[in-house]
Design a protein around this nucleic acid. Structure first.
Length: 268
DNA sequence: GACCAGGAATTGG
DNA sequence: CCAATTCATGGT
């Protein structure tokens, strides 16, 4: 299936640290997400999708976002405009809430390769084998299926294993209505769960619930924001979030993503 | 073998 | 509210 796009770059979107379960092929990417396994390939403004529906792909890749309006609103200075100009096709994905929540619980104090390993191991242990265009992978563990703490721990999840075990019991029910709540309430709900603090909650809200105002403050963004807007003075995460909310506005999360990917891919 | 990685829970100011 | 300490594991 073919989707015509503009302002969309598949590669930078996938490599911007939102998503972990994908594999590069010669001509595109195999993407494994929840119970789906599909293939995505970009040729200029054409996005070729194989293995899922057009409806899903458009929603998943954020192709319904009004990025020209978003860019206009967050272009407050040369830092942001440079980041946008470097990766103009970078989008915020709309992931499955359950997989996204499990993924970012694993992300605490872990590198991207480690997170990827953890999720692959969990999927191998609790998911089912699937294949797309000859690339083998697994479906994501369904809620309730991660029924052994030993196996969760053996996936390399360390101290996060008990959080995953608890979430597995809770299931995805509490996650499915978050998008209907005001941002503050949704965040409060997530933070009340063990293993989810302010940063992880913002990632989940931004990447899977459509809260494009959510502004995850990790170590990279913290350094970046301190340097760009606070004259290199140490400042609390909370004040950074408050500043971002006031400065960037409704689409602060998009500003975060452009800045994040930009600083992470610069050589210095 | 030390040191750190896209944090969070707990505890004590 | 803020700061310090602990928590497992993999990579460098």
């Amino acid at each position: 299936m073919r989707i015509t796009t503009s302002d969309f770059d598949l590669s930078s979107t996938l490599h911007s640290g939102q998503l972990f379960r994908y594999a590069a092929a010669d001509d595109g990417f195999a993407i494994f997400h929840r119970d789906q396994a599909f293939f995505a390939q970009q040729q200029g403004d054409r996005l070729l999708i194989d293995g899922t529906t057009r409806r899903f792909a458009k929603r998943f890749f954020g192709l319904d976002h009004d990025v020209s309006q978003i860019k206009k609103q967050i272009s407050k200075d040369t830092h942001v405009t440079t980041a946008i100009a470097t990766y103009p096709g970078l989008r915020i994905l709309r992931q499955d809430p359950w997989e996204c929540t499990v993924s970012f619980i694993c992300s605490s104090c872990a590198s991207i390769p480690k997170i990827t390993q953890n999720l692959q191991n969990l999927s191998r242990k609790f998911g089912e084998s699937v294949e797309v265009r000859g690339i083998k992978g697994h479906t994501f563990p369904e809620p309730g299926s991660m029924d052994s703490l030993r196996k969760i721990k053996n996936a390399g999840t360390g101290y996060r294993s008990k959080y995953l075990q608890a979430l597995n019991i809770i299931g995805e029910g509490p996650l499915l209505y978050l998008h209907t709540l005001p941002y503050t309430d949704a965040k409060e709900t997530l933070v009340s769960l063990d293993g989810i603090g302010p940063k992880v909650a913002d990632c989940i809200l931004l990447f899977s619930h459509g809260f494009h105002n959510a502004f995850p403050v990790d170590t990279w963004i913290k350094k970046c924001m301190q340097s760009l807007y606070f004259n290199d003075k140490p400042i609390s995460d909370k004040k950074i979030r408050t500043f971002a909310d006031e400065y960037f506005g409704t689409y602060a999360g998009y500003a975060q993503q452009y800045l994040f990917h930009w600083i992470r891919t610069r050589s210095n």
